[in-house]
Amino acid sequence: MTRLEKGELRWGLFFILPWLLGLVIFTAYPIIMSFYYSFTDYSIVQEPFWVGLENYRTLIKADDLFWKSLKNTFYMLGFGLPINLLAGLGLALLLNMKVKAMAIHRTIFYLPSILPEVATAILWVWLFNPQYGLVNAILNWFGIKGPGWLADPAWAKPTLILMGLWGVGGGMIIYLASLQDVPQELYEAAEIDGANGWQKLINITLPMISPVIFFNLIMGLIGTFQFSVQTFVATGGGPAYSTMFYGLYLYYNAFQWWKMGYASAMAWILFLITLMMTIIVFKSSARWVYYHTGGR
């Protein structure tokens, strides 16, 4: 290594040092510790107490609620996530058209996703109030009798999916950014070949933005397993545990019941699940994600 190279290495490390320290303190060390805690009974008030595989055994063999929360979460993965991804993509395609006053349109659709989630959760609880809520009032106007929404175990999850659609702007903006990266020449060339709108979408747009669809899919997968403020505020996991999701149950175990060891075991199971799903998505991505090299 030349002196110049050594100097550059030193400078490089100097600049990334804050992140590197953060990686050790806030990621690497915690991951190791949570692995250790997952084999203990740890209430924080008392020191960790080694219990071996007990936490894992209880979770898998004796905790109905764990399975219920997993089932609920997979429901959201199966229905909520695809709907959300499609809605975000559809909206982005619409907002990528060249029409007047687009800036205002974009702002309107993006706005809900940056509002404080507590405020929007409170708002939606009120909107979905079975007796006085606006939603049932509108349905009533069409002669439909609205369901109990968040109050009904059968409807609570679909209601949360609907609530999620309002915040679709976050994913939309990322799609939008990538749509603007698609080279215009490709469309022009296709037009000359006589391609219609649908063909352009399937053959140009979707392949070109597939890396971003992939990114949103992975983030959505991980997000579905996280603690959701909306759910916490709007239902707290009820009614009859119908909205007790994995992230919420983990939060309750850790920070309401102070079963840190048990919650750490849950976190590790979650880690393995997301890892597995990410690998599957990655493997499959070779078939549908198109990386265009060269850049701009």
Partner: peptide, 24 residues
Amino acid sequence: ILFLILLSTMMIPSQVTMIPVFVM
């Protein structure tokens, strides 16, 4: 390589680190 590690940390669910960070 470090940049790749950085990107892959995005994939770690924050729930995994939340508890030990609290304890710390």
